[in-house]
Simulated assay, not measured.
Amino acid sequence: MTLFKYIIVFLILNFGALAIGSWLMANGPQTDWYQSLNKAPWTPPGWVFGFAWTSIMICFSIYMAYLYKQINKTSVIILFVVQFLLNVIWNYIFFNQHLVGLGFTTIVLLTVVVAVFTIKYIGKMGLLTLLILPYLIWLCIASSLNAYILLNN
């Protein structure tokens, strides 16, 4: 399979994860529950989340296509699937079920998985590692937002 086809496959998978997560959160950010929470002063406006996730998933899809083409190992797929599942279920846990503590645990685990991708494959990916950094940075911010809600509500 060509690199372009891998990019398309990972774009479909990653944007599919965003779509499933969005569906599972059931208008979470617009609910009375979320609106009434004491949120971190650094919480970005709503439109930033859509822009950030779109950019992140484009970069991550390119990163994964290169990684998979170079390595093509079961460990890469397992790590990707764990990342996929954690990304999707955080929305349900946090926004739908209002389990802020479990949500925090989930997002920290997701951050660790993305950090493992970043560190484990930096030798193989070189400068392409820059493509995963927006994901890792955003997850650190999102984790801090979740932590603030956990500690202040």
Results as ranks from 00 to 15, higher is better:
113 V>F: 07
39 K>G: 10
65 A>S: 13
73 K>Q: 14
109 L>Y: 04
124 K>Y: 01
23 W>E: 05
69 K>M: 09
63 Y>S: 03
70 Q>K: 14
9 V>S: 12
28 G>Q: 05
144 S>W: 08
30 Q>V: 05
133 L>V: 12
105 T>L: 14
57 M>G: 00
80 F>L: 08
72 N>S: 15
131 L>N: 02
79 L>Q: 13
23 W>K: 08
26 A>T: 00
54 T>K: 15
133 L>G: 04
57 M>E: 06
151 L>I: 02
39 K>R: 15
95 F>Y: 12
37 L>Y: 08
95 F>K: 04
70 Q>S: 09
128 L>A: 08
72 N>K: 15
30 Q>H: 13
56 I>L: 15
110 L>R: 02
104 F>H: 04
69 K>D: 14
2 T>G: 12
17 A>E: 10
120 K>F: 07
89 I>R: 00
84 F>P: 01
153 N>V: 10
70 Q>H: 05
128 L>Q: 07
126 G>F: 02
25 M>F: 01
81 V>Q: 13
126 G>N: 05
10 F>N: 08
116 V>M: 09
66 Y>Q: 05
22 S>I: 00
63 Y>R: 03
139 L>K: 03
139 L>W: 04
82 V>K: 07
94 F>K: 01
65 A>D: 08
60 F>Q: 08
92 Y>S: 03
138 W>C: 04
102 L>K: 05
63 Y>E: 04
40 A>L: 09
108 V>M: 11
58 I>V: 15
147 A>R: 10
129 T>I: 00
37 L>G: 09
99 L>M: 14
146 N>D: 10
121 Y>F: 10
19 A>G: 14
54 T>E: 15
40 A>Q: 07
115 A>V: 08
50 G>R: 14
140 C>V: 13
146 N>C: 08
1 M>T: 14
67 L>E: 04
104 F>K: 03
54 T>L: 15
19 A>H: 04
79 L>G: 14
143 S>W: 09
8 I>S: 06
49 F>R: 09
62 I>Q: 04
84 F>N: 00
50 G>L: 13
60 F>G: 01
68 Y>T: 10
3 L>Q: 09
151 L>E: 02
134 P>K: 02
135 Y>F: 06
99 L>Y: 12
70 Q>C: 01
35 Q>M: 14
128 L>V: 07
34 Y>H: 06
14 N>E: 12
52 A>V: 12
37 L>Q: 15
94 F>R: 01
30 Q>L: 11
130 L>M: 12
130 L>G: 14
139 L>G: 03
16 G>K: 10
78 I>A: 15
93 I>K: 01
119 I>C: 05
112 V>G: 00
127 L>R: 09
98 H>W: 11
47 W>M: 13
105 T>C: 13
43 T>W: 12
117 F>S: 07
50 G>T: 12
121 Y>L: 01
